[in-house]
Simulated scan of single mutants.
Amino acid sequence: MNSSKRLVLVLCLVSSLSFAVALGHAAENTVAEASAVEVGSKVDGFQSLFNGSDLEGWAGAVDNYEVVDGSIRTRKGKGGVLHTPDKYSDFVVKFEFKLPPAGNNGLAIRYPGAGDAAYAGMCELQVLDTEHPRYKNLDPRQAHGSAYGMIAAKRGFLLPTGEWNSEEVTVQGSTIKVVLNGTVILDGDLANVTEFMADSPHPGKDLKEGYFGFAGHGDSVEFRSIYIKKLP
């Protein structure tokens, strides 16, 4: 190969490398821009609850949570309820979540602002690595997506641990519907519940409004792309 051909080949390789680097930076910028959402901004009628960079607009156990790589994460060994500043009656909330092995968290639904979300609130919807061996003896009403201790969700629709799942929850009156990765896993009416796990009463199940939030249990579960819409 003569020197002129070598020069052309080198220039082509440099050009290709520069393009690949630029493309990589563009992809990184796209991800960063996608995760940077102003709290309160609306998309298709849904209001953003998380800006992707800090815990602006959140209340409750704020010190027990952190923001890492564009997601809200429970600090290891910490917990408590991180909740919205506003109360909601009927609403739809959608978000993405990622579970570590055996990860355990929950969604606080119509939470009054104090107490155990599973009992003081309307309910706690489980966020759990249900299939982990640690939970082999679970009551069905403790599986992921279940109205804790009251109504069992369908199992088998979580993605492998470490992957991002998408979920949408609709709360209307006393009814709750949970859609996990496109499949309805819970569609029930708490007004019809008369039997409770371990015979433990749920005094908050008839609440008409309350805060929405995350009920951490010491595991580093992550949440992102969190949007909520009030229903008439």
Rank of each mutant, 00 (worst) to 15 (best):
M1G: 15
M1Q: 04
M1D: 05
L7K: 14
L7P: 00
V10W: 13
L11Q: 03
L11S: 12
C12G: 09
V14C: 15
V14R: 00
S15P: 00
L17C: 12
S18W: 03
F19W: 07
A20V: 09
A22S: 08
A22F: 02
L23A: 09
H25C: 04
N29K: 10
A32H: 05
A36L: 11
V37I: 15
E38P: 00
K42I: 12
V43L: 12
F46L: 05
S48R: 01
L49W: 02
F50H: 02
N51E: 07
L55C: 08
A59D: 07
G60I: 09
D63H: 04
Y65P: 00
E66R: 10
G70A: 07
G70I: 05
I72S: 01
K76Q: 12
G79L: 13
G79C: 10
G80C: 12
G80M: 14
L82Q: 06
H83R: 05
K87Q: 14
D90S: 14
F91C: 14
F91H: 08
V92D: 01
F95T: 00
F97H: 04
K98V: 02
A102D: 06
A102C: 06
N105P: 12
G106A: 04
G106Y: 11
L107W: 15
A108N: 03
I109P: 00
I109A: 03
R110A: 11
P112C: 06
P112F: 13
P112I: 08
G113C: 07
G113E: 12
G113T: 08
A114S: 15
A118W: 06
A120S: 13
G121A: 06
H132W: 10
K136Q: 15
N137Q: 05
D139C: 07
D139N: 15
R141Y: 15
H144T: 04
G145T: 10
A147T: 10
M150E: 11
A152Q: 03
K154H: 02
K154Y: 02
R155C: 08
G156W: 07
G156C: 08
F157N: 13
F157E: 13
L159V: 04
S166R: 14
E168R: 11
T170E: 14
T170A: 09
Q172H: 10
K177E: 12
K177H: 04
V178L: 09
V179M: 08
L180V: 07
N181I: 08
G182R: 06
I185H: 06
D187S: 13
G188S: 13
G188D: 15
G188H: 10
D189P: 00
D189I: 01
T194S: 14
F196K: 01
A198Q: 13
P201A: 10
P203Q: 11
P203V: 14
G204H: 05
K205L: 08
D206K: 07
L207F: 04
K208M: 09
E209Y: 12
E209A: 10
E209C: 03
G210H: 02
Y211S: 06
F212P: 00
G213S: 11
G213K: 03
G216I: 10
H217E: 09
D219N: 11
S220M: 14
I226E: 01
Y227V: 03
Y227G: 01
L231K: 05
L231H: 03
P232G: 13
P232R: 09
P232Q: 07
